[in-house]
Design a protein around this nucleic acid. Sequence first.
DNA 1: TCGGTTAACTTGTATGTACAAGTGCCGATC
DNA 2: GATCGGCACTTGTACATACAAGTTAACCGA
Lengths: 258, 258
Amino acid sequence: MSIQQNAPLHVRLAEEFMRRISDGTWPPGSQLPSEAVLCKEFGTSRGPIRQALASLRAEGAVTGGRGRPPMVRPAVPSQSFSTFNSFTEWAVGIGKTPGQRTLEVALRDARPEVSEALDLEAGEKVVELLRVRYLDGVPAMIERTCFILEVGRLLFDFDTDSGSIFAFLKGQGVDLYSARHTIDAVAANEEDAELLEQAEGIPLLRERRVTRSASGMAIEYSEDCYLPELTNFTIDNTAERRAALVRVHTEEPKGTHD
Amino acid sequence: MSIQQNAPLHVRLAEEFMRRISDGTWPPGSQLPSEAVLCKEFGTSRGPIRQALASLRAEGAVTGGRGRPPMVRPAVPSQSFSTFNSFTEWAVGIGKTPGQRTLEVALRDARPEVSEALDLEAGEKVVELLRVRYLDGVPAMIERTCFILEVGRLLFDFDTDSGSIFAFLKGQGVDLYSARHTIDAVAANEEDAELLEQAEGIPLLRERRVTRSASGMAIEYSEDCYLPELTNFTIDNTAERRAALVRVHTEEPKGTHD
DNA sequence: TCGGTTAACTTGTATGTACAAGTGCCGATC
DNA sequence: GATCGGCACTTGTACATACAAGTTAACCGA
């Protein structure tokens, strides 16, 4: 989506430079024009040019400099918050047809680990959903999602078999702003195995997340279990910058979910 | 590690600001002093102050502005390339004693998926290691690592039971610069189960990676299988910026390694 | 023809200035 | 006591200038 015309010049320059990189005008390995040349082309001073280049550098799109123009780096994979947090948006983005079969939408007392994850008092109610998610009609993932009551109640007026809960909640003005994701592995229990049409006990790739608003309020806790032959998680890291993905040691043993 | 004294002023300022954030002088939620105040304190102009603040903003350490000073954000977890890629460095960092038991160091023809990962011709030789890794004496991970011959040959003069291969290779001038990591789940085969002192078939959290030099040459391919109750991977993402961790759809089914 | 040196290019760093746009506080008025 | 407006603060944007430090190319001499 093109940024509005009255955005600051350095923002519009950064966008134009990213466009030239992504459409191949400036291919990976090539050197950018000098700052002087860019100043002439855009009729501006070095300040906005340098600020635009700085943002490309911060994103890892270009590197080098000091005595010679920066070079374009191979694209670093990344995913937006909504693509990463919404199965539907992700599936559409990879050219698959997302599907869902809702097994349950329930108002119930939160399980202890859900209370803890959502910063709730023991026994507070949550809205809990259980859905199977499909890619092109093939079972790919089991989704167990809990919402705080204030948000979950909105789902009682929503057909959870119709598509993206993430998109629906955004449309309802729910401020889904940040999330912490934890990835590990569990054995498929009897229920999950049946839903995924697989043998009991096979390994599943589990992604648990707590989603919060901009003010830090916990809104959603989800445990998504994927068939690992259909889905994985991938990241690139370099010596130049710290990776946001962290390998974590867990003290308490965890088993399969019940 | 403190940066050298003759680093540019804006770099030293950024380091000082990060130090104040991490030692609690500027706690999360607090507002930074204004730019004018910082200019007075450090006897400089707005330029270096603003550039230092821009780097904190890019790292997600502070946010906001425009009419009011930025606020300190809660620390975003991250790990350096070496901490993420070296089990030894990671273990030490979390206060555990890392250990290793080498089962095998072998010069052999690369298996097809290793050739492919390391950009080698079919049948080229690699140096392959199999080690069990321990945290405080407890088996935590099975490490199957392959190096291209040029690098792997260095290991024949190295006691792989003595500690970090990553650190040894760095010390030998091997340019380990970037890596692509893929995380999924596999069932423990008979060998892995025995080495980890667990039941066959239990789920293992698998991290595969290809490590390359700055010039893009593949150097290392590794398959590390973790006991998921001891280790997971965690990332925070926000609506503000794209996450480097990508959920990926895999077309071909993958089983346990043999 | 090759190597070294120099000059002209590049980017990086820093200063200063000016003004736009946002925020907060204080005083006046209702 | 609450609200509104104005003013003084803030940061953001952009310009200009100057010089440091790195790189590259060209020229000259051996």
